[in-house]
Design a binder for these strands. Structure first.
Lengths: 187, 187
DNA sequence: GGGATCATGTAACAGGTTACATGATTCA
DNA sequence: TGAATCATGTAACCTGTTACATGATCCC
């Protein structure tokens, strides 16, 4: 018998669904929610979610106690599973929305989803999120700068060192681009 | 019975291992290769590879005919599985190394691995890869610029439109950062 | 007649993560 | 004595992708 594998780490998609349940307030079932991730919808520009995974996440949200499902018979069609966010689900959503992402690479997906939802659910929260994300990226930038500074003094330029320097320079460039973008968005 | 599920898409990790087999030329078994992905090794700054996945990929490389395994008994320890790259494996590696990545988000991981290996296996190939990647990113940049231009004329500024514009602006910023970095590296 | 729409999924596969199994040997 | 090294993995879980099942109804 194994230990119950100490994992946590709820994926962005699950939180996105949780946010949509909060926005759509009331009647949301899988097929309905799927439209948010369909062609030319704003969220679809940022996160892809196939029906298979959508239904999967809905079940997990229910298992976690963040949503409840009620069955709505449809006559001929399969019964609708209408989901509703719970109080603990709402608390979890808020917690997630207040938390900036830790890495620059997560801006493109996770942060954009947070921003989309926060702006539509609570503009004040969105403003705070933006400010916190800006600070986080600034700190990342400073850390990269000091890592680079610690690197260059050693004059031995093995190709491995050159490579590591380039990696840091790329990260710094990406992080600075994010910082400038955040500053422009957060006016 | 299902169709054999039309997938392909070999992951970066597998190609990284293939590249290391080509570099280490001869005696490389799992435990040995693992050192490349250990603390403070240059590749570890870019890609994480736990032993479990390393051994998994080695088996898949053998299954694909890109490497062959020969058993080297060790007495008391488990026998070493020594892997060697094959001719088709070498061809596949070369093909992969010549191909720039299609998306800006893939620069951070997949492109950096290609660059690391190409520079160590064939500097000319590395130079061509850099040039091709630069062109690809330039085209991406142009595409994003025209997408933004197509967006702004419509004056109706729904919050959804604002969001989509921001997404494009972030991508453009990230792509431009990559372009400048590539230009600096590729001197 | 034939495809899109509604509404739910399952099956089979993939990569990836964490924890653990095995068992002798070397070193602090 | 007990941790690290060598060398291989497996087990159990996860997200994610693609293909397909079901079956009525609506619209061209």
């Amino acid at each position: 018998m194994r230990k119950p594998t100490g994992r946590s780490d709820v994926p962005t998609a699950a939180h996105a669904i949780l946010g949509l349940l909060e926005m759509d307030e009331g009647s949301s079932h899988g097929y309905d929610l799927a439209r948010h991730f369909g062609d030319s919808q704003p969220l679809a520009q940022v996160i892809h979610l196939e029906p298979a995974m959508l239904y999967h996440h809905l079940k997990r949200l229910a298992r976690a106690g963040w949503a409840t499902a009620t069955v709505e018979p449809q006559g001929t069609r399969p019964a609708r599973q209408v989901y509703q966010i719970t109080t603990t689900g709402r608390a979890e959503l808020r917690r997630w929305l207040s938390e900036p992402v830790a890495h620059t690479r997560e801006i493109r997906l996770e942060f954009l989803v947070k921003l989309y939802l926060a702006e539509r659910l609570d503009p004040d929260l969105a403003a705070r999120l933006l400010a916190d994300q800006f600070d986080t990226c600034r700190r990342l930038e400073a850390s990269l700068v000091s890592q680079l500074a610690a690197l260059t003094p050693a004059d031995a330029d093995s190709s491995d060192r050159v490579f590591v320097r380039r990696v840091l320079e790329l990260r710094l460039a990406q992080t600075r681009a994010a910082v400038r973008w955040l500053a422009r968005v957060g006016v």
